[in-house]
Design a protein around this nucleic acid. Structure first.
Length: 243
DNA sequence: GCGACAG
DNA sequence: ATCTTGTCGC
């Protein structure tokens, strides 16, 4: 995937917040994605070694079959601390490096963490979408901001996530009884469309487990298939893939 | 002033 | 994010 690495990167919380304020107006909140989304990427971020190493795991799934077609894993020294509201400044450098290693360029990226559901409307999904100019959706495992009605326990149940009168995302029950996911638009996508794609990806590689898949690939890579990038022939007429 | 707080 | 204990579901 073609990725342009930022020439500069904030080194202080104040500089990071200033950048968020400068970028927030550039986030596109309406649908501007391929009418035929074929590849969806799932990005997981986190740290290791007590916080000194930042990790970015990416899987690319063919949509809607959800077959794994590519993945990448990148670890590098952490250069920015974790501060609620400033997650992207710790994680995005590794994410960009991982995305750059992809053979297949995704049409849509589901990113671990919030999108618009952020104090300055610039969660990591929005920030990432702007940097790679790709539609993104924030899929978080817990809440940063916002309120919502009590959610039924049934799979598929969802409720708007609101900040005052503003709807900033949704809470979605991906499996009956489990904790809900916090879905919010990142860049170039509307909330209804975001929910559509998250639900479309959930049956097989449920999020945030989509993200965990990359982890498993990484830890199993030494005893299982070392590499699984599979190229899908765009000209393929009738599905002749049998694996 | 106090609690909340993506990963 | 991590750790622990207890419970539930496949």
């Amino acid at each position: 995937m073609n990725v342009i690495m930022p020439e500069t990167w904030p080194q202080t919380p104040a500089a990071a917040i200033a950048l968020q304020q400068a970028l927030r107006s550039r986030v596109v909140c309406h649908d501007d994605l391929s009418p035929t989304v074929q590849f969806v990427a799932g990005v997981d971020v986190g740290f290791e070694s007590g916080g000194t190493i930042t990790r970015a795991a990416v899987v690319v799934l063919e949509f809607p079959s959800l077959q794994l077609v590519d993945y990448a894993l990148k670890k590098q020294p952490t250069t920015f601390p974790y501060i609620p509201g400033l997650l992207s400044f710790r994680e995005i450098p590794a994410v960009l490096t991982a995305l750059a290693a992809l053979t297949i360029t995704p049409d849509l990226i589901l990113c671990d963490g919030q999108g618009l559901a952020h104090p300055r409307r610039l969660g990591i999904a929005c920030h990432l979408g702007l940097l790679v100019n790709c539609p993104t959706i924030g899929v978080a495992k817990s809440r940063l901001i916002g309120r919502h009605a009590e959610l039924p326990l049934d799979k598929g149940a969802w409720a708007p996530l609101q900040d005052g009168e503003e709807t900033i995302g949704a809470v979605l029950r991906s499996r009956t009884g489990t904790r809900p996911l916090y879905i919010s638009p990142g860049h170039r996508i509307s909330l209804p469309t975001a929910l559509h794609y998250v639900q479309g990806c959930t049956p097989k590689y449920r999020l945030p487990e989509t993200t965990r898949l990359a982890d498993r690939l990484a830890s199993n890579r030494s005893r299982l298939p070392p590499l699984k990038p599979v190229n899908i022939d765009v000209d393929a007429q009738s599905g002749n893939q049998s694996d």
